[in-house]
Computed example of a mutant assay.
Amino acid sequence: MKLHPIVLLALLTVACKDKPKPVVTSIPHPTISTDGTRITFPDSLMMSPFTTQPARSGAIRTDFSAPGHVAAMVLRSTENPAERLVLFDEPSLSDNYTAILQHRINIQTERGNLERVKDLQAHGAASGKEVIEAQTQLANEEAAIISDEATLKLAGFDPEALRKARPNTILVVCEIPENQFGSIRKGLVCRLNFTAFPNERFVGVIDNVNDYVDNTTRQIKLRISVANPDGRLKAGMFAQAEFGVSEGNLMTVSRDAIVTVQGRDYVFIQTGPRAVERRAVELGQQRADRVVVQNGLKENDQVVTANVLQLKGLSFGY
Results as ranks from 00 to 15, higher is better:
residue 116 R to W: 10
residue 122 A to N: 15
residue 128 G to S: 12
residue 101 L to R: 12
residue 126 A to V: 07
residue 105 I to W: 08
residue 103 H to V: 00
residue 105 I to K: 12
residue 108 Q to S: 15
residue 107 I to C: 10
residue 108 Q to L: 03
residue 119 D to I: 04
residue 130 E to Q: 11
residue 99 A to L: 03
residue 130 E to C: 06
residue 95 D to G: 01
residue 102 Q to V: 10
residue 111 R to D: 09
residue 114 L to D: 01
residue 98 T to Q: 09
residue 96 N to R: 05
residue 109 T to A: 13
residue 109 T to Q: 11
residue 104 R to W: 03
residue 118 K to V: 13
residue 127 S to E: 02
residue 116 R to H: 10
residue 128 G to F: 07
residue 125 A to D: 01
residue 110 E to L: 06
residue 104 R to V: 09
residue 122 A to H: 14
residue 115 E to T: 08
residue 126 A to H: 10
residue 103 H to N: 12
residue 128 G to H: 05
residue 98 T to N: 06
residue 117 V to P: 01
residue 96 N to I: 04
residue 113 N to K: 14
residue 101 L to Q: 11
residue 118 K to I: 14
residue 101 L to Y: 01
residue 108 Q to T: 14
residue 121 Q to F: 06
residue 130 E to W: 05
residue 107 I to N: 05
residue 133 E to K: 11
residue 112 G to V: 06
residue 125 A to W: 12
residue 118 K to M: 14
residue 102 Q to K: 10
residue 99 A to P: 00
residue 131 V to E: 10
residue 99 A to G: 01
residue 108 Q to R: 15
residue 127 S to F: 06
residue 120 L to H: 04
residue 100 I to Q: 00
residue 112 G to M: 04
residue 101 L to M: 10
residue 117 V to R: 05
residue 132 I to M: 09
residue 106 N to K: 06
